[in-house]
Structure formats: C-alpha cells, structure tokens
Write a protein that binds this DNA or RNA. Structure first.
Length: 381
DNA sequence: TTTCGTACTTGTTTGGTGAC
DNA sequence: GTCACCAAACAAGTACGAAA
C-alpha cells in the first residue's frame, strides 16, 4: 500500500486514527460533532473501543467474555431477548424461544443486570456508533445540499424524503383514540423519518459484528496483562506479511487472516479465524483457508489455527470441533466466547442422543470446545 | 478526487429433507 | 406436525484497487 493510500485509509495501517470530520453541510445546530462519515469503519470502531476500555483498566482472562458481550451482543427487538439464534426460530412458540428466555435470564444474572435492564448493559458498540447517526441521517435529508438539489422541482408535488403513507396510516390507526387532532405534515414526516431511520440502523448491525468482532478480540487481548508484551497482535493481516509464509503466486488473490498472534520469544504463530456466527459456506471457507495457509508456510514449522466464535447452533459447533484435514483435526482449538451460554440455552437437549447438543456438551467437558477465558489463560501460561 | 466494480463480512429469508 | 439440519439467495455495509 502506498503512503498516500495509507494516509487516506488510516485504519489499514493498524494504527489508531483520528475520526474523519463531516462536512459542515451535514451537521445540524445540535448535531454530533464526532460522528465519522464511516461510522461503522475501522477507525471509528477502534476509537470507540479505546473509549470503552479507557476507564476499565487491565482485563483478567475471566472477564474477557463479559466485555465481548457488553460490547457486541444485542437484543433481538422482535422478542426483546438477547440474540443467540436466527430470529425466525426464536419467535414465541418456536423451539428457540424458551432457549432464548433461558439464555437471557442467565446472562442478565451473570452481568449483574436484570432481564428488564439487560438491554442497557449490552450492545455498547452499536449503540455508540448509531448514537449520533440517527441525527446525522435526519439532518442530511434537510441539508442545504438537498434543498439545492430539490430546488428545480419546487412546487411540483415531488415526494419529500421519508414519505411513507402506509406507515403513517399504521401510526394514525393505532393512536387515533388519543390524538385530539391531525398532526401537522411536518410532524408526520419527522415521525416517519425517525421510525425509518431506527429500523434501517438495525440492518447495519451485521457490518459492525464482522470486523468489529476481530477488533474487539484484539482490543481485549492487548489489555490482558503481559499478553501484549509477549505477543505481536495484528488484525486483518496479509498472510505473506506474517513471518514464515510465502507471498501468493502472481495472479492469485492475497489472503488475509482475521487475527494473528505471534509469540515474541520463539515466533510461534497463531492464526485466528473470528466468526461471530457460522454458516455452511463459512465452514467450507475454514478448510480452504487452512489449505492455503499450509501451502504458503515456508518454515516447516507448525502454526496454530483457531476458530473464535459465538455460534450457538450445536450442529455447527460440533462440526467445527470435528472437522479434519488429512486425518488430523484441522482447528487447534475451537473457542466460544462463553460456552456456558449454549449450555444454558439448550439444556433441554443435552440428553437427546440423536441431536448434536450432547456432542457439544462432551466437547466442552473435554476442552475441545474451550472458552475465551480458557484460551487466553493458555496463551498467558 | 471521484466513481465503479469486486470481494468480503454478517444475519435473514425461504424452502427442502429426514427423523421422531 | 414438529423439529433439527442443510443450503442457496438475498440484503446491507466496509474496504480495496483501477479507471476516469
């Protein structure tokens, strides 16, 4: 990467970067001054992570999962419970609803919260990313630039941004008994815009969970006493920039590793694939990545290949623990943010011999499926 | 500097199969 | 009929690199 490009994309330099200021045009009088144009981008994520940890001091291995959940775990708005599985299967009456209830209650207790207030104790990163974004989006629709763009069409009845007659009808229908009079048009538009912005922001969460999970893990590891001194910790590292790996052949695509830990005393390399959740297509990717890493390795030395995940599905966890390459387990370790979570969720299924849950229970017992705490403790040993 | 295409991440939606 | 499990298509956003 050129120096000029690195300057334009400070996040890729692995160095904390200052937030990019917004143009004045997008700021309201009361608008946020510190919201970046790339609110979900690396620079803003790391700025917020620094802010989150600024008052918290060093982290003990046993606290790592709490920080991961406080930062990233969210409440599924359709059921009001902590998200642990696909939304459709968690709806009331379906088989993951009681499991979501169990997990929600357990988590509230463990975080010193209550089932009612847990929503305020998790999802810190997303709530802070979007805190100013709502105002920003609403301000953008009224900015001088927008007024200028609409000027040639003034008075021709063009729809205003955010007009949604159906949504408005729902609001009116629900509130007609309590509304003394029709709301002014400007109030109606503002209300609809705020509702739409609120819903749209939720759709952006997945973008924070992706690289945000990698950044959160790195931020936690760097704050474990002694770990940052002992390991070189890098996120989204190009494979050939890791000691002992060849560059890709000409014409082939560069490989990046989600998280890399290089032990300073002996150069032992730990390649981490961080996936908040797992799907079948991503499982295939684990194997493809591992084969590429193995082919590129040029020291003839072992390296560790670790999956860190928050997947709750027992079948997917089981497969991750058991996937083999050339008659050996492919993953050195499978790390779950907090294995007690899945166990609490599907305790009803751990004795069902034909399901995957008992296998997951066994993998946890044997240490094949370990916790964030267990993995970090092992790193510091 | 801006625009566009591509690659990548995530969760959601939809639909299917097989066991019980 | 219910549930676990599987798979593909999709949606939304970030980031990179090339071209204009």
């Amino acid at each position: 990467m050129s120096a000029a490009r690195r300057a334009r994309n400070p996040a890729r330099s692995n160095q904390p970067a200052a937030a990019t200021p917004l143009s004045d045009d997008l700021l309201t009088e009361n608008g946020p001054a510190d919201v970046t144009e790339r609110a979900f981008g690396s620079a803003n994520r790391n700025r917020l992570l620094d802010q989150y940890f600024a008052t918290r001091g060093p982290i003990k291995p046993g606290e790592a999962w709490e920080h991961a959940y406080r930062l990233l775990l969210w409440i599924d708005r359709t059921i009001g419970l902590a998200h642990c599985y696909e939304s459709d299967k968690c709806q009331p009456g379906r088989h993951w609803y009681p499991r979501s209830l169990a997990f929600h209650g357990w988590l509230a207790e463990r975080l010193g919260s209550t089932p009612a207030t847990l929503k305020d104790d998790v999802d810190w990163l997303f709530r802070n990313v979007t805190a100013g974004l709502d105002a920003l989006v609403l301000a953008a629709s009224k900015s001088t630039m927008v007024q200028k763009q609409r000027a040639p069409y003034a008075g021709q009845g063009f729809p205003e941004p955010g007009e949604d007659p159906k949504l408005l009808a729902i609001v009116h229908d629900a509130l007609q008994e309590w509304l003394p009079a029709k709301l002014p048009d400007s109030v109606e538009r503002s209300l609809v815009e705020r509702i739409q912005t609120h819903i749209n922001q939720e759709n952006k969460r997945k973008n924070l969970i992706g690289e945000g999970f990698e950044d959160t893990l790195a931020a936690i590891l760097r704050r474990i006493p002694g770990l940052a001194k002992r390991y070189d910790i890098r996120t989204r590292q190009v494979l050939h920039e890791i000691p002992g790996f060849n560059p890709v052949r000409k014409g082939q695509k560069e490989r990046k590793v989600d998280l890399v830990l290089i032990r300073k005393p002996d150069g032992r390399r730990t390649l981490v694939t961080a996936k908040w959740s797992v799907r079948a297509d991503r499982e295939e990717q684990f194997t493809a990545d591992f084969r590429d890493y193995s082919r590129a390795e040029n020291r003839s030395e072992d390296f560790d290949y670790i999956l860190v995940t928050n997947e709750f599905d027992p079948a997917r966890l089981k497969r991750a623990c058991e996937v083999r390459v050339e008659n050996a387990l492919m993953l050195t370790s499978v790390v779950h943010v907090q294995p007690q979570g899945p166990l609490v969720a599907y305790q009803d299924a751990v004795h069902h011999k034909n399901w995957s849950a008992p296998h997951v229970y066994k993998h946890i017992q044997t240490g094949r499926l370990t916790s964030l705490e267990g993995w970090i403790t092992n790193l510091t040993a």
